[in-house]
């Protein structure tokens, strides 16, 4: 009887102790988790500041009146707002013409590049033909070659555009090669995009090929059995089924074409686009100020404000697009898997 009581008390003691231990452990885990999430939040917030810093600087300078530029009491928010800087940038960037040109080139090139790249990607993903491996290596090769390596030959190519070699071929017989100057016309940007070798075309082919490869073959087989031909299967079955990836890639294409400076400064000549106008904005403003006042140099703070306002004008459409589509962009990349 004594023994029994002893074990019982021991047992009870044991249970209360374990209960206490578990309680303590749960509490410890909870506090650790809270500390962990606070730490995570702080870390991410700190890094976000680095990302947001230049954009915030741009914003605060672009909306600041000229007399508050050097005011040391203002850190971020100026005492009053002005649209003067933005107006200056608007005039000297020839914003309305440049924006229309940029828009035409960006949209046209992105759409054409999507068409040609998705076709090529589908060919590489689903069909087995001789030389597929080598040709796909060439796709990768186009990603690796930096654009400036072929910049000058490209300029020459479009300056004396020989209609894909036909002009030169005629020249062999008549002695006078047929050529036309495409530098400064939209075609200089549109043609490479149309044939899938526009800006980062190789990368798009690579990404789309991964996503086409991931799709079940049964979809196509079912379509063939139902009597679709190849073109119809591609347009009505394959493309709609990979639309998230297509739209993501399309957004990338828009961003890269809108931001492009390398190709547009090389091939577009005097045709103003936002990126080429932005690089000459400061000079233009300076020239105007010198002519107006006869001074040798303009107020550097004024120039800087004009430049930041110009940057704001250029980035704003992309930022707006991003704000509306960012949820779609992030989710689609996560779900459809860039990875494949």
């Amino acid at each position: 009887m004594g023994v029994e009581r002893l074990t019982q008390t021991n047992k009870g003691k044991f249970y209360t102790e374990t209960a206490k231990k578990t309680k303590r452990r749960v509490l410890l885990g909870k506090t650790l988790r809270v500390i962990g999430s606070i730490y995570r939040f702080l870390m991410l917030a700190c890094v976000s500041v680095i990302v947001l810093y230049p954009i915030m600087t741009m914003l605060t300078i672009a909306i600041r009146p000229a007399d508050q530029m050097t005011d040391p009491t203002i850190v971020w928010i100026p005492k009053s707002f002005t649209f003067e800087n933005i107006q200056t940038a608007f005039t000297y960037m020839k914003f309305s013409t440049a924006a229309v040109n940029s828009l035409i080139i960006t949209l046209g090139c992105s759409i054409l590049e999507m068409i040609s790249c998705s076709m090529a990607a589908y060919g590489f993903a689903r069909y087995k033909f001789k030389g597929r491996g080598i040709l796909f290596m060439m796709v990768i090769f186009t990603i690796l070659v930096p654009p400036f390596t072929i910049a000058i030959p490209n300029y020459v190519l479009f300056f004396q555009f020989d209609y894909f070699g036909i002009g030169s071929l005629i020249g062999l017989f008549t002695g006078e090669p047929l050529s036309t100057n495409l530098v400064g016309s939209y075609l200089a940007m549109l043609l490479p995009a149309m044939f899938g070798v526009g800006i980062r075309g190789g990368l798009f082919i690579y990404i789309l090929r991964q996503s086409f490869r991931n799709m079940p073959r049964e979809l196509e087989e079912a379509a063939y059995i139902d009597g679709c031909n190849t073109a119809r299967t591609f347009i009505q079955i394959i493309l709609p089924n990979s639309r998230t990836m297509l739209i993501t890639v399309f957004l990338f294409a828009i961003v890269w074409y809108w931001n492009d400076h390398t190709y547009s400064s090389l091939l577009l000549g005097n045709l103003p686009t936002l990126s080429t106008r932005l690089t000459v904005l400061q000079n233009e403003v300076l020239n105007f100020m010198q002519e107006a006042s006869g001074a040798l140099s303009g107020n550097p703070y004024f120039l800087s404000a004009a430049l930041q306002a110009g940057c704001l004008l250029m980035i704003l459409p992309l930022l707006l697009m991003y704000i509306f589509l960012q949820r779609f962009l992030t989710e689609s990349i996560e779900r459809s898997g860039l990875v494949g």
Binding site: S116, C117, M119, A120, Y122, G123, F124, R126, Y127, K128, F129, R132, L135, M138, V139, T142, V145, I150, N154, L157, F164, G165, L191, P192, M194, F195, G196, V197, G201, I205, F234
Partner: peptide, 16 residues
């Protein structure tokens, strides 16, 4: 398969 990659091949040869 060749038809699908033809536009790209064309562009690759002439513009790259």
């Amino acid at each position: 398969g060749y038809i699908f990659i033809l536009p790209w091949l064309f562009g690759f040869i002439f513009f790259f």
